[in-house]
Computed example of a mutant assay.
Amino acid sequence: MDTRRRPEPTTATRRIPAGLLPALLLAATLAGCGTTQPAGGSPPAAPAVPIELDAAALDLVTWSGTFPAGHHLVLRAMAKVTADCMRTHGFTWTPYAAEPPLDGTDEQRTLDLERRRRDGYGLWRTDGDGAQEPPSADPAADEPRYQQALNGDPARTGSLDVPGLGTITYALDGCTARGYATVFGDITTWARVAYLPQGINRTAARTAAAHPRHGEALAAWSRCMAGHGHRYATPDDIRVALGTAYRQSGGRAEDRREAEVALAVQDARCDQQVRLTATELELRREAVRALAVDQRAEIARLSAGFTAAVARARSLLAA
Rank of each mutant, 00 (worst) to 15 (best):
M1G: 09
T3Y: 15
P9V: 13
T10H: 08
R15V: 08
R15P: 12
R15K: 02
P22K: 02
L25M: 11
A28T: 04
A28I: 01
A28R: 03
A31G: 14
G32M: 06
G34M: 08
T36Y: 06
T36G: 08
S42H: 09
P43Q: 10
A45T: 13
A46S: 13
P47W: 02
P50I: 07
L53E: 04
L53H: 07
L53S: 07
L60G: 08
W63S: 12
T66E: 15
H71N: 11
A77L: 05
M78N: 04
T82D: 04
C85A: 01
M86H: 02
Y96D: 15
E99T: 13
P100Y: 11
P101D: 06
G104D: 09
T105Y: 12
Q108P: 03
T110S: 08
R117A: 09
T126R: 01
T126G: 05
T126V: 03
G128E: 09
G130I: 06
A131K: 14
E133Q: 11
P134C: 01
D138C: 12
P139Y: 00
A141L: 00
A141C: 10
E143Y: 01
P144N: 02
R145F: 03
Y146W: 08
Y146Q: 10
L150V: 07
L150N: 03
L150T: 05
G152M: 04
S159M: 11
L160K: 00
D161N: 05
D161H: 08
G166R: 01
I168R: 11
T169W: 08
A171V: 01
D173Y: 04
T176V: 11
A181G: 06
T182S: 05
T189Y: 06
R192S: 13
R192M: 14
Y195G: 01
N201V: 00
R202G: 12
R202K: 04
T203R: 15
A204W: 07
R206K: 11
A209L: 05
A209P: 09
P212Q: 01
H214Q: 11
E216Q: 15
L218M: 11
L218E: 07
S222G: 07
H228V: 06
H228A: 15
G229P: 09
R231L: 12
Y232F: 15
A233K: 01
P235E: 10
D236Q: 13
R239F: 09
A241R: 12
G243F: 01
Y246Q: 04
R247Y: 12
G251A: 01
E254R: 11
A259R: 10
V265F: 03
Q266R: 15
D267P: 02
Q272D: 11
Q273E: 15
Q273N: 07
R275G: 01
A278E: 14
T279I: 05
E282K: 12
E286S: 13
R289H: 02
R289G: 01
L291P: 05
D294R: 11
E298Y: 00
I299P: 06
I299E: 03
A300P: 07
A304R: 14
F306Q: 09
V310F: 03
R312A: 08
R314D: 14
R314T: 13
S315P: 00
